[in-house]
């Protein structure tokens, strides 16, 4: 059944019947977010910088898309532009076919850093969005409590953010973004600052949330495993300038579980991502050109650690 008989390992392009059918169903859904020929240039002390060039893609309803790329590929710039926090120089961003202009509650955002309001309790943090959008009082409070329950933090409704652990804070941040019922949830390396164990719990939790509510997710990460574990499709960017390298359909079947990390599809996808992000003939980065360590032996010749 192999499409490419020359290879021993299956290609990341191979999809099982179920996976192919699922992608077919996704393609039937309406487009939520469309990015057309997006470009961003700005002038800095080092001269004119082209952060993004000609980026185009579509995300359909309830799709989970991860963006991955080497550092400096502009993935943060991209998501901040989609959120309306940064302007773009060319192209357009359409949400439900309407151009995006500035930040708005139709695009929820979860930041890497702790962005909770420290002066508000957890419940008040979650109520903040509804209140800003003209839904006040009891209704906002009921919504907040429902969403806190969904992320498992009902007990902490009256705690302040500084009393919570990193993982709990990000759960609140997710609840706070989702309570507004945005069309799309933009997540900018939300688990990047968490320890490995908490991160893995949060990934499974995020998938659970995504399965149960009508939400489309665009998720930035630099962790290849995280991208493959979470995503339907992975948008791979390359650096200088940030351009789309490939939009990969992840062949790993759903429902996902940590057991799949060693499956053939998973490894094939990971190999492809490695190939794209760390090319076999690496061009020396600017840092590599300047930083050249020269090893000198300071220990006795017999005193070996390996």
């Amino acid at each position: 059944m192999s499409m490419n008989p020359d290879r021993l390992a299956p290609s990341y392009l191979e999809q099982s019947e179920a996976v192919r059918a699922r992608f077919e169903r996704i393609r039937q859904r309406e487009v939520i977010l469309e990015v057309r020929n997006l470009g961003k240039r700005f002038s800095s002390a080092q001269g004119e910088v082209e952060a993004l060039r000609d980026i185009s893609f579509q995300i359909r309803r309830r799709e989970f898309v991860c963006v991955i790329g080497p550092s400096g590929c502009g993935k943060s710039t991209l998501i901040r532009t989609l959120a309306g926090l940064e302007s773009h120089s060319s192209g357009e961003v359409l949400l439900d076919n309407r151009p995006v202009d500035g930040p708005g509650s139709d695009r929820g955002m979860v930041f890497q850093g702790y962005s909770l309001f420290p002066w508000l309790t957890v419940k008040k943090n979650v109520m903040f969005g509804p209140e800003m959008n003209g839904r006040g009082g009891d209704e906002a409070e009921q919504d907040a409590l429902t969403w806190l329950d969904l992320v498992g933090l009902s007990k902490f409704a009256n705690a302040y953010p500084h009393q919570l652990s990193g993982g709990m804070r990000q759960r609140v941040a997710i609840a706070r973004a989702l309570v507004n019922q945005p069309r799309i949830l933009l997540m900018d390396e939300p688990f990047g600052a968490l320890d490995a164990q908490t991160r893995s719990k949060m990934q499974s939790h995020l998938l659970d949330i995504w399965k149960n509510i009508d939400i489309t997710v665009l998720f930035i990460t630099h962790d290849l495993d995280e991208a493959i574990f979470l995503a339907d499709r992975i948008l791979v960017l390359k650096a200088h300038p940030g351009e789309v390298q490939e939009l990969i359909e992840v062949p790993v079947p759903r429902p996902r579980s940590p057991g799949q990390f060693s499956s053939a599809e998973f490894l094939a996808t990971k190999a492809r991502l490695e190939e794209l992000i760390h090319p076999p003939m690496p061009t020396e980065s600017e840092e590599d050109q300047v930083v050249k360590p020269r090893m000198i032996r300071f220990t006795d010749v017999d005193d070996n650690v390996e």
Binding site: A83, G84, L85, G102, P103, G104, S105, R107, G108, M109, F111, G113, Y114, S115, L116, F117, W119, L120, F128, G129, M132, N133, A173, R176, A177, N180, L186
Partner: peptide, 23 residues
């Protein structure tokens, strides 16, 4: 980030000042 979070939650104009910056 605090200001940006507030903006993505739909805060704009004077409310950004009174409900976010000041507190």
């Amino acid at each position: 980030t605090i200001l940006e979070a507030a903006m993505t939650l739909g805060t704009r104009g004077l409310k950004l000042l009174t409900r976010v910056v000041v507190p």
